[in-house]
Write a protein that binds this DNA or RNA. Structure first.
Lengths: 177, 177
DNA sequence: CAGTTGTTTTGAGTGATTCAAAACAACTGC
DNA sequence: GCAGTTGTTTTGAATCACTCAAAACAACTG
């Protein structure tokens, strides 16, 4: 499966939104489609294999253009760089791991934005005309849960537990990674 | 209403969470309490009046300490710097204006996190142990709605409308401010 | 009031992203 | 098939928001 294989289909989608078909765009499109949620750096790393000369700046340009065109969706969880995904059109949501920042998709029961509206009665929205509801769940991914439980077994190991306790907290920029 | 007026109460809250009572902390606490949602720079600007020597770095330190201690809450809407608010304890949400980035509170019907859980049946969560759901609504604030409607009346003014159309889109870093 | 420990300051550094201008390559029409 | 036009990519620099580290300093303890 080389770039050329997927190209025709991707090329058509680019043209459909009025964008020129270029090698970097095809490569980015393919890279993002082949992975869940990638930041600009990760995309750059992925396409460097088949398209060695591509600059990081171009990746930013391309990601921006594709996002504006609606071919990619950008999410920006607190404490992570912007991530791009190719699942668009459905209005799904995300879970982010508070410890390792891993991201997974969460199905939206509604599908169409806004899938949620602020309660009218609560005096909410204060004059806003809302068109989207973005839901981000925070928790521990399976791996981190295991890692944390494992180290919890060695009961009172004071240095380790301090850092790990913070992983149980809500959205807060991560100290390490 | 000077700093000294609010100090006793704020000082007590600082001590309660094991933090030393210092002038910058009291000033930050007061500044954030007196405004909706402030970023570090805005807090710094506000306290510079009464506490001229305070460095921006200290403001970051203080905001971090107060957030960790649970006296402030930090939100990070896509495309905005981190914002701090003093409404804590209740699990409320936010609306962000896609045009001017203004933020307003939205009441949460549940109040306790997580106020929302991914549908079990949808195959969602993929092994995550979720403890919080963060909801961000996106829309146009009253002012921007008026501004946009006003300029829409002068039907075909091509230069203005392009930029404004993007304000109707979902979470995307804002071009100007 | 002295000591200890946490805070603030100063100064520098970093990651993620954007801006701008010049070199370049896709599509258009000939 | 080729020249032109216009959109893309590259190069290089700059910016924003924030973090790191070490030294100066000030709150609380006894």
């Amino acid at each position: 499966m080389t770039t050329t294989d997927a190209a025709p289909e991707a090329g058509a989608r680019l043209r459909a939104v009025g964008l020129k078909v270029t090698a970097p765009r095809l490569a980015v499109l393919q890279a993002v489609a082949g992975a869940g949620h990638l930041d600009a750096d990760a995309v750059h790393a992925r396409i460097t294999g088949e398209l060695p000369g591509t600059s990081l700046q171009s990746v930013y340009n391309v990601l921006g253009a594709l996002t504006d065109a609606g071919l990619l969706r950008r999410i920006e969880p607190a404490g992570s760089p912007a991530l791009y995904e190719s699942r668009i059109g459905d209005n799904h949501h995300h879970v982010v791991c508070t410890r390792c920042r891993a991201v997974a998709d969460v199905e939206c029961v509604v599908g169409e934005p806004p899938c949620l509206v602020p309660g009218e009665s609560t005096g909410a929205a204060s004059g806003f005309a809302i068109h989207t509801a973005e839901v981000t769940f925070w928790g521990l991914c399976a791996d981190c849960r295991v890692a944390l439980e494992a180290s919890a077994l060695e009961a009172s190991a004071p240095e380790a537990s301090a850092a790990e306790a913070s992983a149980l907290e809500t959205p807060a920029p991560v100290a390490s990674a």
